[in-house]
Design a protein around this nucleic acid. Sequence first.
DNA 1: AAAGCGGGGAC
DNA 2: GTCCCAGCTTT
Length: 360
Amino acid sequence: MDFKTLLSSWYTINARSLPWRETSDPYKIWVSEVILQQTRVAQGTAYYHRFISKFPTVKHLANAHEDDVLKVWQGLGYYTRARNLLAAAKYIENELNGRFPNTYQELLKLKGVGQYSAGAIASFVFKEPVPAIDGNVYRIIARIFGVFDSPYTSQGKAVFRKVVVELMNKSAPDQFNQALLDFGALQCVPRSPNCSICPFVHYCYAYKNNLVDILPTKAKKIKTRNRHFTYLLIRHGDYTFISKRKSKDIWKSLYEFPLIETEKPLAAEKLQDDDEWKLLLASSDPEIVYFSPTVKHLLSHQVIMARFVIVNITKTTKGLLDRFKKVHTSSIDSYTIPTLIDNFLAAEPAEKYFLNPPTP
DNA sequence: AAAGCGGGGAC
DNA sequence: GTCCCAGCTTT
C-alpha cells in the first residue's frame, strides 16, 4: 500500500476529536490555527473556546478593542498573534467587505498567517490541495523517508514541501493534512515513539537505520539572555500605577507595574539609591512593606529574575504621573498582564500587602 | 539565514 | 535541566 492509503487507514481509527473539527466556519478554523501556532492542543483548547465565545464572528472581532482581545489571550504567550488576528479581522471586514479569503494565496495576505496556517485553512475548509507542514510533518517525513535537510532553513523546507506534495492525496487534502498532524501528535512523537505499532515500521528509514532519535535534524540551541527586573507595586490609597509596554521587546502591549531593569540584581539595600527609584518615589514618602524573594521566570530565550517590591506612598509624584496610569488597585484584574506578574498577584504576599492590605 | 517572540508539559 | 509544541515576522 502507498503512503496516503496507509495513513488514511491509521487515521480512520485514530483521528482525534477536536472542537475546531466540528465546524466548517473558516473564521473558527483560522482562530484555532493561530492559537495552535507553537502551542499544544491541550494548552490551546480552553483559549479557543473562550476566544470564540467572546468573538463569535470575524465581525465581532473586527469591532473589538485590542486590549479586550489581548485579555482573552492572557497567559497563552506570543501576544503578537492576538494583535495580528485583530488586524486581519479589520482587514477582512473593511477591505474585503467581510468576505473571508478562500484561497491559499489570499489567506497568506492575512497578518499572522504563514505557509502552514494558510495551507491548513485552505485545505481544511476549502479543500484546496495544498500541504500544511508543521513540526509534526517535518518529523514524520524526515524519519520515514530519511530526509536529512533542516526544517529550520528555507532550502530544507522546500525539500520537505516537495516530498509532501508528491505524497498527498489531492482528492482529500483536508483528511490527508489532518491525518499527518494526528499521526505526528499521537504516533510519530518526538521522543521514544512506539514504533512496534507503527503502520510504517517496515519501510521507515529512521527505524531501519536506528535514526529515530536523530531525525529530524535538530535546531541549533538558542542562547538565553538574563535580565533582572524589579517591579514596584505602589499603594497610594486605593490606587496603584501601571503602564503599557510599547517597545519591541517581550510582552508588547501588555500592562505592567513600574519596572526597574538593571544589568545585575538590584540589592534591597541599594534600591533607594537607584536613579529610577528616586525619579519615581523620592518625594512620595515611600514605605517599603514587602520585598519578595527572586522569582525566576523562563521564556524561550530569556531568563527573567524578578523581584516585587510593595511600597506605600502618601504623596504622588510628577515622575509617576507623567509616565504611568493611575488606576484602582482592584481593577488590575481587567488589564492584560504577563504571567510573571499574574503569578505574583495570585500568591499570598500580594494578597496580604497589596490587594487587601490592613487598613490603618 | 538568523534572531526574536511565551508559556507549559513531558521526560 | 532539555526538548518542542497545528509558526510567523523582522532584521
